[in-house]
Amino acid sequence: MKIVVCVKQVPDTEAEKRLLPDTLTVDRESSNPVLNEMDEFAIEEALKLTEAHGGEVVVLTMGPDGADAAVRKALSMGAHSGILLSDPALAGSDAVATSYAIAQALGTTEYDLVILGSEASDARTSLVPAMLAERLGLPQLTFASKVEIDGTSITVNRLTDYGHDVVQAQLPAVVSVVEKINEPRYPSFKGIMAAKKKPVAALDVAAAGIDAALVGQAAAATTVVDAAQRPPRSAGVKVTDEGDGGVKLAEFLSAQKFI
């Protein structure tokens, strides 16, 4: 079985993020780039599946040249090879364009399963997995908290507000995973050393067969017109318990429409 895991490099989740005042795009220079945390769960799931069923794991990322660090991290966790899709023409791509570009890049390889994170921690649209499945014409099994493969059929628990649905499809398919699904391994030193020798294919727009007019900032369906700082947190309400603390709490919660 061959599994492609799509990973995104994002600004450090713990760092304060800001927009560049002139372009209104995320300031990616001011914080450390890291592998999107949710994507570590996608990699772990792919590794577990190939450990159980045999096969190989390919990691694919679309991003600037430095994004190969995200690929290396996935390789040091145990993925077998990587694809780095990078081209100045892709800069500023929105979710629609990102899904198109990834779909085209996937055309350069064979696979039985594509696994993604269910959300990137920077833009957080959660759109890419569903759009990608649609573009590839494959079944989409999103928000998976459990994945099982039996021959050519795949079954996932799809996380919902009320619990989970059990969803089944035939391979090949596109899956996005949630953090509940597993506990990602830390790369071992052996893995780190081995990652150096694993192949990473570089693709540009031409090699992936991407129409440059359909990607990049110019092609984005929406534009950010204005952005403002989030207002600072207000001080909150202090309730002094003079025997009626419970009632006051209830009144507060009810005024906020929590109860």
Binding site: R72, S76, Y186, P187, F189, I192, M193, A195, K196
Partner: peptide, 9 residues
């Protein structure tokens, strides 16, 4: 690079 990757991990 490898020592740094280990340290960071």
């Amino acid at each position: 690079e490898e020592y740094e990757a280990l340290r960071a991990t």
